Simulated assay, not measured.
Amino acid sequence: MERKGMVIGLRPEKIAEYKRLHAAVWPDVLAMISACNIRNYSIFLKEPENVLFSFFEYHGSDFAADMAKMAADPTTQEWWAVCMPCQQPLDTRKDGEWWAEMEEVFFHA
């Protein structure tokens, strides 16, 4: 199992919409997240900086393949098309990233 932390900005004028969307995530999107071996997935918002932090546990054996499977799903693509205009990627993210991956520097179980 791997733990993943990621961060992205949230456009101030889209905060209410983003919260509304995530209060009722589409069931097929949730099913795909689970099918791609993601568990204990949370997204946190830090205001007034408007930064989203996501955390999840990956329980699979091929993260890249599972993320490709998710990206190929038409319903997930529709969901992303609704959510992505709310988000503001960090200028410092790596090439190919939308959400910037973070290094885990501490864990206590």
Rank of each mutant, 00 (worst) to 15 (best):
M1D: 07
E2L: 14
R3H: 15
K4S: 06
K4N: 09
G5S: 03
V7H: 01
V7K: 04
I8V: 07
I8Y: 01
G9F: 03
L10W: 03
L10V: 13
R11E: 02
E13F: 05
E13V: 14
K14N: 06
K14M: 11
K14E: 03
K14D: 00
I15A: 08
I15W: 00
I15R: 14
A16Q: 07
E17H: 12
E17Q: 12
E17T: 13
E17K: 14
Y18R: 05
K19I: 14
R20E: 15
L21A: 06
A23Q: 15
V25C: 08
V25P: 08
W26P: 06
W26D: 10
L30N: 09
A31Y: 04
M32L: 13
I33F: 14
I33Q: 13
I33V: 13
A35W: 11
C36W: 10
N37G: 04
R39Y: 04
R39N: 05
R39W: 02
N40L: 08
N40S: 14
Y41F: 12
Y41W: 08
I43M: 12
I43H: 06
F44P: 02
F44Y: 15
F44H: 12
L45I: 14
L45T: 10
L45G: 04
K46L: 15
K46G: 04
P48S: 01
E49N: 11
E49W: 15
E49P: 05
N50E: 05
V51T: 13
L52A: 10
F53E: 12
S54K: 09
F55P: 03
E57A: 11
Y58N: 12
H59A: 14
H59F: 07
G60V: 07
S61N: 15
D62G: 02
F63N: 05
A64H: 10
D66M: 07
D66K: 12
M67Y: 02
M67S: 05
A68D: 08
K69P: 03
M70N: 02
A71P: 03
A71H: 09
A72Y: 06
A72I: 04
A72T: 04
A72E: 04
D73Y: 10
P74G: 05
P74C: 05
P74D: 02
T75M: 14
T76H: 15
Q77V: 09
Q77F: 07
E78Q: 15
W79Y: 11
W79K: 13
W80M: 11
A81M: 05
A81F: 04
V82Y: 09
M84P: 00
M84S: 10
P85S: 04
P85Q: 05
C86T: 13
C86K: 08
C86N: 10
Q87I: 02
Q87P: 06
Q87Y: 03
Q88Y: 06
P89W: 00
P89C: 00
R93V: 00
R93L: 01
R93W: 00
K94T: 00
K94L: 02
D95N: 01
G96V: 00
E97L: 00
E97Q: 03
W98H: 09
W98G: 01
W98Y: 09
W99G: 01
W99D: 01
A100G: 01
A100M: 07
E103Q: 10
E104R: 14
V105M: 05
F107V: 12
F107L: 09
H108K: 10
H108Y: 14
A109T: 06
A109L: 09
